[in-house]
Design a protein around this nucleic acid. Structure first.
Lengths: 346, 346
DNA sequence: GCATTTCTTGAAAGCGTTTTCATTATCTTA
DNA sequence: TAAGATAATGAAAACGCTTTCAAGAAATGC
């Protein structure tokens, strides 16, 4: 029938009290089978759907989750990373019947003001925040406010629950793979060092070298900021050092690196091998297609929601720490021949 | 004070009835100045924030807007278009104090089921839907349901309100620009022809040719589907026709086209000029940087929300049709020298 | 200066659920 | 089979706001 059926009307049709209908709807155990069936029948007939507002009011929960992305508009667009996060989170919200409230910031100044504004609305049951900056203020605001939240990305504070992918191990795998192919003088282009993920990838890089008794050289480490152009300039700085291979901490930067290599009249992978990180769609379309480390961004978003719901149900203690595994995706940017020193990969 | 202050508590502090507080909060005119001031003072003191659930219930409005993106997960990610849409919509929702509920579909089968599910929830005050497919079912479902909605993209049905950018004029500008530079034998790579925007861009292309007395040739029209790879193959089909310039209906396809040109041993823009459409960030990073038509996607999202709110406030009649202008962004993919036939651009 | 209109305010009835509490009906168990 | 425990149900009170209605106060018109 029409969409404005109320619980009371259902109760009249089923000849029971509203309380009982509510119990059936919410799957309480203490309802006799025949009554339950009668109610369900009435629900089916009428097409009854509980009114979310009334439910929120009575239960004191909004059934709304916030996704806070504290990044300027420009960078959200440029980076498909956020598309994936949003997708994963949206899918999970859908799946668990939550409404997703998306909060994007345009400027840093907005951020703290808006976060506290958001929180004071008592609108959100919980929050997911993507904050990879090490010193992000919003995280502390959330912590202080006591609202349940999950961070996408890691954090030092031992009260925060987070979901992240294993940056260090991903980087380690990448570099070990390059070493296994026989490459030496492996350089890296890192992300911005105030970004925890960037630091962890760098550490994975260093660890892999050390485990194979390679001495890391400062000259082989160029700092970027995850943008294409920064990959381009970083690579230009690296080229005089004549690295045989480069571990680039993001696919986007790898694109820039490829560009720099090409402009220098060199070839990937013949003259220099490149391995990226992220496995975003453009990675498969570079020339040559990029060998890279896939991180399960979408799944991380999904998992973050599930973790948040778990916290909502069972409390924030103990904090949840979830690290998702990464995966090596082999394409053709490391296919250069390195007959010397060739080893079998672990 | 704490976040659980209720209107009634405020009313006690201000020594007025709850009704009066409500009137002040909602900016009703009929409140004497001194009373209003007393109430506002109490609100400030307590940090009172209205409870959204209670308000929704009483008003019968949820203050939630839905954004429906009927696209498979993969394509949403691949296409930054949607990032922009989401941003614009999210920003506007924020601005007007609405909650954004994001609805993404994974499969087409999901679509109609989920749309009706969504609608039956009586959760959404209104909906924005991005549907560029000409025969999209969801649009009819929305129409039938009577829920207020705005389409991002155009539609034949004369009851639907929409916001879109001016595809035909954008394409017209692009082709006219090429003609003005002296190029002849201008080809086009179109989007999928079940997509209205794609068709309109094609029409703009045709019209521009006709207006300059150029005869369109079927052999110079290659159909793509907005993906990089389709641009690549379309360009391969076009090359034997030796076009001097190509109007490519999306930047993403233009990237593929550049790739095909490069592989054929030719150069953009020296041997063949290319002009794109969209002006997404990657456009500036192609080699050479892409001259393109900028469409204000984010602004369209923002405007769609404003239009929807207008409909919510004043009814869906008459349907709103908003066409936003596009803009020519000149970079370096049309810089080839064409000494013959050079004309002044209109 | 009295009747009429207009303003300002408060009381109270919703809005559609959930949930507590009390009541009755149904089992156990001795 | 009586007493106590347990299960199934309904009445009614929240939840926190908006809004209608009525009443009293102030302003207006003649």
């Amino acid at each position: 029938m029409n969409g404005r059926v109320t619980l009371k009307q259902v109760s009249e049709i089923a000849q029971v009290s509203p309380s009982t209908v509510s119990r059936v709807i919410n799957q309480y155990p203490n309802v006799s089978d025949d009554v339950r069936e009668r109610v369900l029948q009435a629900v089916r007939e009428t097409g009854y759907q509980p009114n979310p507002a009334a439910r929120s009011l009575a239960r004191g929960k909004s059934q709304v989750l916030g996704l806070i992305i504290p990044k300027s508009a420009a960078s959200v667009c440029a980076d498909p990373f956020f598309s994936y996060v949003i997708q994963g989170v949206a899918a999970a919200c859908m799946r668990y019947d939550y409404v997703l409230s998306l909060v994007l910031f345009h400027t840093i100044e907005d951020e703290s003001r808006t976060v506290s504004h958001i929180l004071s609305q008592q609108l959100l049951d919980g929050v997911i925040i993507t904050a990879t900056q090490r010193d992000n203020q919003s995280v502390y605001q959330l912590l202080e406010s006591g609202i349940p939240f999950v961070l996408l990305g890691q954090h030092d504070n031992d009260q925060v629950s987070y979901v992240d992918s294993d940056n260090q191990s991903g980087a380690y795998t990448a570099v070990t793979y390059l070493l296994g192919l026989g490459y030496r003088r492996i350089a890296t282009i890192t992300g911005p060092l105030n970004n925890l993920a960037a630091v962890q990838r760098q550490q994975g890089y260093l660890q892999a070298l050390r485990d194979r008794d390679q001495l890391p050289e400062d000259a082989l480490i160029a700092v970027g900021d995850f943008t294409e152009i920064s990959g381009y300039t970083a690579m230009q700085r690296l080229l005089p050092q004549q690295p045989e291979a480069v571990f680039v901490a993001s696919d986007t930067m790898a694109q820039g690196a490829i560009r720099a290599v090409a402009e220098a009249g060199l070839r990937v992978p013949k003259d220099i091998a490149l391995i990226g990180y992220d496995d975003l769609p453009p990675a498969a379309q570079t020339i040559p297609p990029l060998t890279t480390i896939r991180q399960p961004i979408k799944r991380a978003g999904y998992t973050a929601v599930e973790t948040l719901l778990d916290i909502l149900a069972h409390g924030a203690e103990p904090p949840r720490r979830i690290i998702l595994p990464t995966e090596l995706v082999i394409r053709h940017s490391c296919d250069g021949v390195r007959p010397l020193n060739r080893e079998v990969m672990a």
